[in-house]
């Protein structure tokens, strides 16, 4: 009986909120019938459980909370877009410098080879032209991306 009393003590709170398995429930309910102390405790805890549940209906989140969160997120999106734009804007000149450097080096090599009477094959000329064109296209691409991002960032801010 004493052992059973100890087991029920560990389960009685869970019984009051209806969280026990059928087997555990049977253990508690059969003990409670014989033990007036545990019966009184169970009555008390069932009243507590009822009171706790009655507080549940009062959770009312203010309707502005959702609007506030969505506005914060829009602002964050916009600032992320601006940060990315700023990051890219800091490097806009890189493809231009690369393209210029490449063309200058290619021309120098060509001139040196011509001075030594080495005739450059046509493929080399084409390679230099294609590489330079690629660099310029890259530069144009970055400029275009910057423009689109700035527009998108402006659209996100209400």
């Amino acid at each position: 009986m004493r052992n059973r009393h100890r087991i029920v003590k560990r389960l009685i709170g869970l019984y009051a909120i209806g969280d026990l398995s059928p087997v555990e429930r049977d253990v508690v309910s059969s003990h409670v019938k014989q033990c007036p102390l545990c019966r009184a405790e169970l009555d008390r805890l069932q009243r507590v459980a009822e009171d706790l549940r009655s507080l549940r209906t009062e959770d009312r989140l203010s309707p502005t909370c959702k609007t506030h969160v969505l506005a914060r997120i829009r602002q964050m999106k916009a600032s992320i877009g601006q940060e990315q734009s700023a990051h890219l804007a800091g490097w806009w000149f890189l493809p231009l410098v690369q393209a210029t450097a490449f063309v200058v080096v290619a021309r120098l090599v060509e001139a040196r080879m011509l001075a030594r009477d080495i005739i450059l094959p046509n493929v080399m000329h084409q390679l230099v032209t294609v590489a330079a064109a690629g660099m310029f296209l890259g530069f144009l691409g970055i400029a275009g991306a910057l423009l689109c991002q700035n527009r998108a960032a402006r659209r996100l801010v209400p």
């Binding site: 003590k9 709170g13 869970l14 405790e41 009171d51």
Partner: peptide, 17 residues
């Protein structure tokens, strides 16, 4: 979790009393 929940209920009963 089970033991904390059981403790919380019994303690709450004591506090209310």
């Amino acid at each position: 979790v089970r033991s904390r929940l059981n403790y919380a209920m019994t303690r709450l009963g004591e506090l209310l009393d």
